[in-house]
């Protein structure tokens, strides 16, 4: 038995199961969970607790409004994760970290909050679907399909509607925006 199994024994089975699922999905998408297993399992325990409390994976490190529409940008994985992992080596919670973080090349402590102040004050406000977030195609090009963008990882899909789950970061359909 490895030390890792001992740590797992102190957590509920649903927490351990979700931990393994997130670990697998992270690797598939080119991300890394924090290798400090106890720290990470505690955060996953927080996600499980928040799923029960709010009905979604509210960020364990941010106070929830308790309404999904207001909290959607900080449902895990949040819209700020990728930029934070690139700039600071870790997401806001340090659930997702970079290779540099794992190698100990960046300080392992809290990072600044990237979420815009207006969302912190009043909750997320969704861009209207009638106004695509991207620039209009040059020369008035007419696209045969609308383009949908995953707001977590930036994956683009040209199809009638967004995919049910992002194939890169496993974010759900409601995290997509009309891009073009």
């Amino acid at each position: 038995m490895t030390a890792g199994d001992d740590v797992e024994k102190t957590f509920a089975p649903d927490v351990v199961e979700l931990f393994h699922r997130l670990d697998r999905e992270a690797r598939e998408g080119g991300y890394n969970l924090n290798p400090d297993k106890e720290f990470t399992l505690r955060l996953v325990e927080g996600l499980v607790a928040n799923q029960k409390r709010y009905g979604y994976w509210q960020c364990p490190c941010r106070l929830a409004f308790g309404e999904k529409a207001k909290d959607i940008d900080v449902v895990c994985p949040c819209y700020y994760r990728d930029a934070d992992v690139v700039e600071f080596g870790a997401c806001y919670c340090a659930l997702y970290v970079s290779e540099e973080w794992i190698a100990g090349k960046v300080p392992q402590r809290s990072i600044p909050e990237r979420r815009p102040q207006e969302f912190i004050d009043r909750g997320y406000s969704k861009p209207s679907p009638a106004e695509p977030a991207g620039a209009a195609p040059a020369g008035g090009l007419k696209l045969p399909y609308p383009v949908w963008r995953c707001q977590v990882c930036g994956y683009l899909a040209a199809r009638d509607g967004p995919p049910g789950v992002c194939p890169v970061c496993f974010a759900k359909k409601d995290r997509f925006e009309r891009f073009l």
């Binding site: 505690r42 955060l43 927080g46 607790a49 928040n50 919670c93 340090a94 809290s110």
Partner: peptide, 9 residues
Amino acid sequence: ALSTCGWCR
């Protein structure tokens, strides 16, 4: 603090 936050812990 928040009960679920790793840095708070």
